[in-house]
Design a protein around this nucleic acid. Sequence first.
DNA 1: ATTTACTTTGCAACCGGTTGCAAAAATACT
DNA 2: AGTATTTTTGCAACCGGTTGCAAAGTAAAT
Lengths: 333, 333
Amino acid sequence: MAITLKEVAERAGVSRSAVSRTFTDGASVSEKMRRKVEKAARDLGYSPNALASSLTTGRTKLIGLISNNFHNPIFLQVFDLFTRGLQDRGLRPLLVNLSDETDPEASVRMLRQYSVDGAVVASSTLSPEFAKAFRDAGVPVVHSFGRHSSTPQVHVVGIDNVECGRMAARTLVERGYKRIGFLGGPQNATSTQDRFSGFMSELEKVRGLTLSHSFAEAYSFNAGRAEMMRLLGSKPAEAYFCGDDVLSIGVLSAISESGLSVPGDIGLIGLNDMEMAGWQNIDLTTIHQPIRQIVNSSIELMVAMLDEPDRYPEARIFPCSIVERGTLRPLGF
Amino acid sequence: MAITLKEVAERAGVSRSAVSRTFTDGASVSEKMRRKVEKAARDLGYSPNALASSLTTGRTKLIGLISNNFHNPIFLQVFDLFTRGLQDRGLRPLLVNLSDETDPEASVRMLRQYSVDGAVVASSTLSPEFAKAFRDAGVPVVHSFGRHSSTPQVHVVGIDNVECGRMAARTLVERGYKRIGFLGGPQNATSTQDRFSGFMSELEKVRGLTLSHSFAEAYSFNAGRAEMMRLLGSKPAEAYFCGDDVLSIGVLSAISESGLSVPGDIGLIGLNDMEMAGWQNIDLTTIHQPIRQIVNSSIELMVAMLDEPDRYPEARIFPCSIVERGTLRPLGF
DNA sequence: ATTTACTTTGCAACCGGTTGCAAAAATACT
DNA sequence: AGTATTTTTGCAACCGGTTGCAAAGTAAAT
């Protein structure tokens, strides 16, 4: 079906090596030869088979892009940035949806069968061990949005979720809230755990507060809404730090449905600063996570690792910042 | 680095063919041989190189998944469904983000270099010609969410956008709206054109209406909001058919910001029935597009085409239906 | 015009598998 | 037991490329 190198060589009346060389940059080919080969290739509509060449070069330019988060709209942006960034560098994302199974071995095996040059794990919920399985199998890996550790086993690019928790705590205290709640995402997500621990550790330093916490079943609108509905059944807190924006939006919906107002009756702060948080009918005060920077840095790291597979693992942590909108009462009440 | 067939063969003391056969189902291998080889393979941690075998078998199990719509949250669901569906059938999605360039040739070339077994074009804005470029290059292709044509050149799975336009028109007329507007997505998107033509052709049959139309710059919240803001500058229509839900939500935001109410002052009907449309603080009346069915059918079609590449092109059109929520005044005013 | 140095080219082996074919082994039939 | 049939196995060529090496060709230096 497809044209092969051999056919081009025959048509141009040269050896197969010559053809190969004209399509390999850095190889030694005279101008004359190159023109002859290119002409023949053009006539025949030849384009080299990347997979065949990967066999000898050991590079496929395929990068596994692994995620289990196909329900949080913010990940659409993440995929957009990753795919474009990788493409711009001549790399091809092989997408792996982990929503059903979370067995690292199966993914590792599959990606090794396709000889990916590297793997990006884009998930704030998977454990560092997951990413480590790739490293152990000799596949360069970057864990984006992963848990920050002082002794990282794999490259991690993301934010300091513990610090974000503290930041949210300080903000709520500053606004004079006394009865404060944590409404997190799934309890087994590393990001939830870290945000929770940072949030609580900061609040425990302050006297005279009433603290509560609960967890939604997923990072999704419906889960947030359901959990808030439940909380509204008994006496809710004055303000909540919500695990994530999409959760917050569900929470807002529950609050407004029950006839209460934000921030009049209940204050709310989210995390992510997704596009929707800025929509006028939502107007959510939240903590901005620099998605773009995280993705770009992840890609740069991945590219660096292709040349230097045993690069010493590092954690790249980007600062977050509060974006003030309309769901918290103002300073100095 | 990785273990090869040859090493397994040596350890098991058999020929390379024998090893190959134990990993190819349907091949003739005795039980004894199989056990011996599997043992050696397990000891060594061998897993076959899918790309090397693709060289002789001509199958990579790679499927190009091409889209240019990374800003509409509905596509996150589309990607979720596609990736899982393909994975479940042992196929691997190679994701191509077309946001920057729309040159079919470049994508075709790239996907041919990776010898994909097929390509899915998931886009409601790309023209049929785009998908046809794959077919012409001998790559089996399915255009999901593509333009419906009575003489399809490639397999298309989606909805009848013209009919959706008509449906929206009938609904608005039925509710007694007289000044009616079309607020579409980008004018060069095939889905916009078809919805527009259906909508208008139906309305032109009715006497005594005042019609208007305009187009947002993209299928996005901000574009919808901006366009509605502009329309609110002069005298807006009584009701709008909006190109898409995400656009509608932007429109809602603009309306509420300008102090008007929905459906009191302005009625609105969207298209897609994305999850968000059902959120209580949005509550958008819209036309449901059966995403899941479209994706599943696309995958089935693709799988069928892998066995029968020259399958006669067909169009699979799924019916849409109105989902009544709170943005149109009720019947019988 | 030679010799020397560098560039370009083709040969042939290899990457990690698959597969048609014939020999070898196992099984079935007289 | 010997022969016919079926199953299992290995050989060797092939898939579509790359690359080390030596031969051939060019250019520079003497």
